[in-house]
Amino acid sequence: MDWDDLRVFLAVARAESLSGAGRVLKCDAATVGRRIARLEEGLGAKLFIKSPQGYALTDAGGRLMPHAEQAEQAMAAASEDLGGVAGQLTGQLRIGAPDGSANYLLPQVCAAICDANPGLEIHIVALPRVFNLSRREADMAIGVSPPSAGRLTVQKLTDYHLHLAAHRDYLAAHPPIRSRGDLRGHRMIGYIPDMIFDKELDYLSVTGMDSVGLGSNSVSVQMQMVRAGAGLGIVHDFAIPACPGVVKVLPDDIALTRSFWLIRHADDRRSDRLNRLAEALAQGIRREVARLETLA
């Protein structure tokens, strides 16, 4: 068994399909299938069961998984040690994040980390849902609540704040808002109720309103609706500086505090490289949230 065989095994286990693994490995599904068959023959054990849902690990495949992941971490560490500049981080890092942080925080935070580590490549995966780190959809993920299950480590990054807001043009064209009672008759912008993937994103109740006139599963789309003067919405304070003309409404009355959490696979604690990347990411996010909120 060699590392290249384990790399193919990990790709199939995470993608749960030969075609998905092929896209990651940049080869065709038939080649991936042959490599898995060769590995199974060499080990004398069946590693996957094919079903209508895809490729699932057998008991033997499940036992191989942690060994393959340890080999992956060892190869990354060796590459870092031998191929990079002393003290610098190299290789690739994939970060999963909800689209609010992915759009308004991570671009500048990750750019600064890459500037300090020229051999490092960072991919930001922005999805409005919880990431599955067990399938290695990402190396680490940012969440809006700590997970309660799985072999994961969780670190609180920072609190952040949200307020009701609207564009000045919208406020100038509609009746004044001096209290929550004045919100009746105004159009609310927010999440599509049945697509809220985390209870921490259920903001509507704080306004006293019971429905949204314009909704999206993307907080960035919601922010663009607010910026376009389409109505009122609960927005991240750290996003307001990116949207000229958007101002807080009833800031002393309608205010929320939420938290960002850094979520990692438990086995990654043994990786000095990932520990250093996690710390750089945590420090950068804390600084950027604090900086942008002072501008809001």
Rank of each mutant, 00 (worst) to 15 (best):
M1P: 13
L10W: 04
E16V: 08
E16C: 06
S19H: 14
A21H: 09
V24S: 11
V24R: 14
T31H: 13
T31F: 13
T31Y: 12
I36G: 05
A37Y: 15
R38G: 11
L39E: 03
L47M: 02
F48D: 07
F48K: 07
K50E: 13
P52L: 05
Y55N: 14
A56C: 14
T58W: 07
G62M: 05
R63P: 08
A68S: 06
E69S: 05
A71K: 07
E72Y: 10
E72G: 12
M75R: 14
A76C: 07
A76K: 12
A78R: 15
D81F: 15
G84R: 10
T90F: 09
L93A: 04
R94N: 09
R94E: 08
R94T: 13
I95T: 07
D99N: 02
S101V: 15
Q108V: 14
V109D: 07
C110W: 02
C110D: 07
I113P: 10
C114A: 12
A116P: 05
P118Y: 08
L120H: 02
H123D: 14
H123W: 15
I124M: 03
V125A: 10
A126V: 01
R129W: 11
F131Y: 04
F131I: 05
N132D: 13
R135K: 12
E137K: 12
A138N: 11
D139G: 04
S145I: 08
P146E: 03
P147N: 09
V154C: 06
K156P: 15
L162D: 10
L162I: 12
H163E: 12
A166P: 00
H167Y: 00
L171M: 04
A173T: 11
P175W: 03
I177L: 04
I177D: 04
R178F: 12
G185L: 06
G185C: 03
M188F: 09
G190P: 02
P193K: 03
P193T: 03
I196C: 00
L201C: 01
L201F: 00
D202K: 11
Y203V: 09
Y203A: 10
T207H: 01
M209W: 03
M209H: 03
L214I: 01
L214M: 05
G215R: 00
G215V: 00
G215K: 00
S216D: 02
S218M: 01
S220F: 01
Q222Y: 01
Q222T: 01
Q224C: 00
R227P: 13
A228R: 01
G231K: 03
I234H: 06
H236D: 10
A239V: 00
I240L: 13
I240Y: 09
G245M: 00
V246Y: 00
V247P: 03
P251M: 02
D252I: 04
I254N: 01
A255L: 08
A255W: 11
L256R: 04
R258G: 11
S259I: 02
F260N: 15
W261V: 07
W261N: 06
L262D: 05
D268A: 05
L277S: 07
A280E: 14
Q283A: 13
G284N: 01
R286C: 08
R287G: 12
V289M: 03
A290H: 06
R291V: 08
L292M: 05
T294N: 14
